[in-house]
Every structure is written in C-alpha cells, then in structure tokens.
Deep mutational scan, measured.
Amino acid sequence: VCQVIAMYDYAANNEDELSFSKGQLINVMNKDDPDWWQGEINGVTGLFPSNYVKM
C-alpha cells in the first residue's frame, strides 16, 4: 500500500470507480493493471486512472 496525490479532479463513470478532487491523498491498494489502480479514500474503494495521480 502506498499513497499518491491526485493531480486532477476525477468523476467516476461507473459504480466500481473512485471519484476524487485535485490534491486529495489516495491510498493505493492494487496496481495489477498499469492504467487503472484500485484505491481507497475515507473508507471508499474503487478504480481510478493511474495517469491522474503522482507519487
């Protein structure tokens, strides 16, 4: 598990995705897919595009 910072706002398009705002910290749970990582914010988990965040 690592933390990343959102570089942009992201609004989920599907129920399994994670919405976040620019500057939010996201706990990364899974990086099996290079493009879509699984993350957690405040107890909510979902997929998000890895190119929207930085380490």
Rank of each mutant, 00 (worst) to 15 (best):
L18P: 01
V1E: 10
I41H: 14
K54A: 06
G46N: 02
I5Y: 09
A12P: 05
M7L: 15
V53M: 03
Y52T: 09
A12Q: 10
M7D: 14
E15V: 13
D32G: 07
G43H: 12
K22T: 09
A11S: 13
D16L: 11
Q24H: 05
I41Q: 08
A12L: 02
G46I: 00
G43I: 01
N14E: 10
V28L: 10
G39P: 01
N51D: 13
V1P: 02
I41T: 12
T45Q: 12
N51S: 12
W36T: 14
F48L: 14
E15W: 05
D16T: 06
N30D: 08
K22L: 05
W37H: 03
N27A: 11
F48G: 00
L18R: 00
I41S: 11
S19H: 06
T45V: 07
F48E: 01
V1Y: 03
V1D: 11
I26L: 09
E15S: 13
G46K: 07
A6P: 02
E17Y: 15
V44L: 11
N27P: 03
F20T: 01
N14M: 12
K22H: 05
D9W: 03
I5S: 06
N51Y: 09
A6G: 05
I41V: 10
A12G: 09
D32E: 15
W36Q: 11
A12N: 15
E17H: 15
S19G: 10
L47F: 07
V28C: 08
F20S: 01
A11N: 12
D33G: 11
W37I: 02
K22V: 08
A11F: 10
S50W: 03
V1N: 03
V28Y: 01
N14F: 08
G23Y: 10
N27H: 07
A12C: 07
K22M: 06
C2V: 06
Q38R: 12
I26P: 00
N14I: 07
V44Q: 08
G43N: 09
V4N: 02
D16M: 09
Q24G: 09
A12R: 13
M55K: 04
M29A: 12
G43F: 04
D16F: 11
Y52D: 02
D35V: 11
Y8W: 10
M7N: 08
A12D: 02
V1C: 03
S21N: 13
K31R: 09
L47M: 06
I5E: 09
S21D: 12
I41M: 12
W37A: 01
I41Y: 14
L25E: 15
I5G: 03
K31L: 15
G39C: 00
A6I: 00
V4Q: 03
D9G: 09
L25W: 07
E40W: 05
E40T: 08
I5C: 08
W36H: 10
P34C: 04
Q24M: 10
F48A: 02
M7V: 09
V44I: 15
Y52L: 15
G46A: 06
Q38H: 15
P49R: 14
M7A: 08
D33E: 13
V44M: 04
G23N: 14
V1F: 15
D32F: 04
V44R: 10
N51K: 14
K54W: 03
L25T: 09
E40M: 08
K22N: 12
D35H: 10
D9P: 07
Q24V: 08
